[in-house]
């Protein structure tokens, strides 16, 4: 088992002929993901890498392939429309990798996707991977291994760092999910934690948060009241100055809210394991397996 994706995932790549889209489509295919189609307006009828059919619209692609998942690599000005197009076409899991989507666009995308009954992951996220089964997004496949640890994170490379440490220590992962660094995202920590709680393969969850907002605090309350599985947490940005956007649009301390200290305190209150350094995950997770 796993969460959100597995070997039944059938994937469309929106923006498959673009620089990032084509590179990562190839990587996903090499990993073993079932890529059933691509979408680039005006290139319908062509083939990607001589095997994957390209369509002009997501609706056409879904009608022809029955895809259940879509990953988006289109530039920021078009990303909001791409997410809504996927939802309108009946895609159930939409993963938006694009960084730089205006937050006001997301105030419209979020309720629409929800009404269409789809799950959105991202934007500005590395996607997700169920080791050995399927990868949707950009997480490097070779650093992951199948196993019992559910990983959920707001960051990309920090997640790779920690997943790599776990794998090297012989600890595999059920699914690694990057929820993204934007202030409004489709899937939050609680969504992922609830899915891991329900997933029989997952026995421990590793969670990487960062400064800004209250998603981690709410997740901690969820861990305390709703979860039976142990969770180990980390917060990036303990040395970040207030009022500055630390790379991620959502990583900003507003006034005195959203600090690392208040998030760590919430983790402590929830009885979670707290990693002070990335490398601490190995021992903390191991002790809870």
């Amino acid at each position: 088992m796993s969460i959100f994706i597995d070997n039944t995932t059938t994937l469309l790549v929106q923006g498959i002929t673009g620089r990032d889209g084509s590179f990562h489509a190839k990587q996903m295919m090499e990993y073993g993901t079932t890529v059933v189609g691509g979408v680039t307006p005006g290139k319908g009828g062509q083939k990607f890498e001589e095997t994957v059919p390209i369509f002009n619209t997501v609706a056409q692609a879904v009608a022809a392939t029955g895809a259940n998942t879509s990953v988006i690599y289109v530039p920021p000005p078009f990303a909001a429309d791409a997410m809504m197009e996927a939802a309108a076409a009946g895609i159930k899991l939409i993963v938006c990798i694009t960084e730089g989507v205006p937050v006001l666009d997301m105030t419209k995308v979020y309720p629409y996707v929800k009404e269409m009954g789809a799950r959105l992951l991202g934007p500005n996220c590395p996607g997700l991977i169920t080791p050995g089964q399927s990868k949707v997004g950009i997480i490097p496949g070779r650093i992951c291994a199948p196993g019992p640890v559910g990983v959920v994170s707001r960051s990309g490379t920090l997640t790779y760092e920690i997943v790599n440490l776990l794998t090297k220590a012989g600890i595999g992962q059920s699914t690694c999910v990057g929820i993204g660094g934007d202030p409004i995202n489709g899937t939050n920590f609680i969504d992922a934690l609830a899915a891991f709680e329900a997933d029989p393969q997952t026995t421990v969850v590793a969670m990487m948060g960062e400064i800004g907002g209250t998603d981690e605090q709410e997740a901690a309350e969820f861990v305390r009241t709703k979860m039976s599985k142990p969770v180990v947490g980390f917060i990036a940005g303990q040395t970040a100055p207030p009022g500055r956007r630390m790379g991620h649009a959502g990583a900003i301390i507003s006034g005195s809210a959203g600090t690392a200290a208040e998030k760590i305190e919430a983790f402590e209150k929830a009885g979670m394991g707290i990693a002070k350094r990335p490398m601490d995950f190995v021992e903390l997770v191991k002790a809870r397996l």
Partner: peptide
């Protein structure tokens, strides 16, 4: 990466 950059500063 922003998350790793923050984590590096913290470390």
């Amino acid at each position: 990466g922003a998350g790793l950059a923050m984590a590096t500063m913290d470390l």
